[in-house]
Design a protein around this nucleic acid. Structure first.
Ligand code: FES
Ligand code: FES
Lengths: 131, 131
DNA sequence: AGATAATGATACCATAAATGTATCATTAGT
DNA sequence: ACTAATGATACATTTATGGTATCATTATCT
């Protein structure tokens, strides 16, 4: 089971790299080779981060991406949500599975609690703390 | 992302059901209908739990499964391991992805810590506490 | 102006994992 | 013998993951 999929992981690494470089513009080409990430895949990832406002894009020759003002405070939770959409550790507790006794079920309580714990941990890890 | 996949979830519910019934033998047929789980799927799941020694199987007419002596102390961690094999929240930290600076990386430290937390939580939830 | 080099947007593809089904053999009770 | 259960295992379907490819747009450089 994976809490952090590969695109999320690549995104985090790329963001750390951006943050380390300050406001410098970096092309996908350069970053892909320096991080050993497939270029088109990284490109898709950075475009998404741009759409979400975490990166700023510069088109045209000599262009690339750089971190936006929100980058340093961006949390791992933010990134996970962007690439993995939801955040439910189990279908069971999210209601996707019909289950008798969804209310007052001890299993559900435990899983919900764990989910909260994980989410809170991820919310407390910011990009600026990783560089 | 899912920490607990459906087979794991079904397994937990089935184990709770078994535990609640004490040493009574229950057939897959009965359990599948009472838990609303596809019968052949549940069967495969229970067979696996039997192989792992958590359930005892009775073949032949009137047969079925019942909890073994180890059932009450079985933890969610045990069940997750049985159905999902490993337990690594991220490929990155498990070494499946080549990454410069695998040593002394702050991200890795955080993820490893979170992994420990999750594992410990799961290890502290026993079937007997869920019935 | 034109060549070049970057991103924007989006569609496509390949593989793996998750979620089940089906089948035949074996065993036990009636 | 007949029936109803599991044992073992192969097969099928669907969804998620990981990645490519392409064409349009924009900016720079000569
Ligand atoms: S809500 Fe279904 S077993 Fe807990
Ligand atoms: S080990 Fe690769 S970024 Fe941490």
């Amino acid at each position: 089971m994976k809490l952090i999929t590969r695109d999320t992981d690549y995104a985090i690494r790329a963001l750390c790299c951006m943050a380390a470089k300050g406001g410098e513009v970096i092309s996908v080409k350069d970053m892909a080779s320096s991080l050993s990430i497939p270029r088109p895949f990284l490109r898709k990832i950075l475009q998404k981060l741009h759409k979400e406002g975490i990166l700023t894009a510069m088109k045209g020759k000599g262009g690339g991406f750089k971190g936006s003002s929100s980058l340093p405070e961006t949390t791992l939770f933010n990134v996970v949500m962007i690439f993995q959409g939801d955040f439910s550790l189990s279908d069971h507790t999210s209601g996707k599975i019909a289950c008798p006794g969804m209310n007052s079920c001890k299993l559900k309580i435990h899983i919900d609690g764990l989910e909260q714990t994980v989410a809170n941990r991820l919310k407390n890890i910011r990009i600026k703390e990783l560089v």
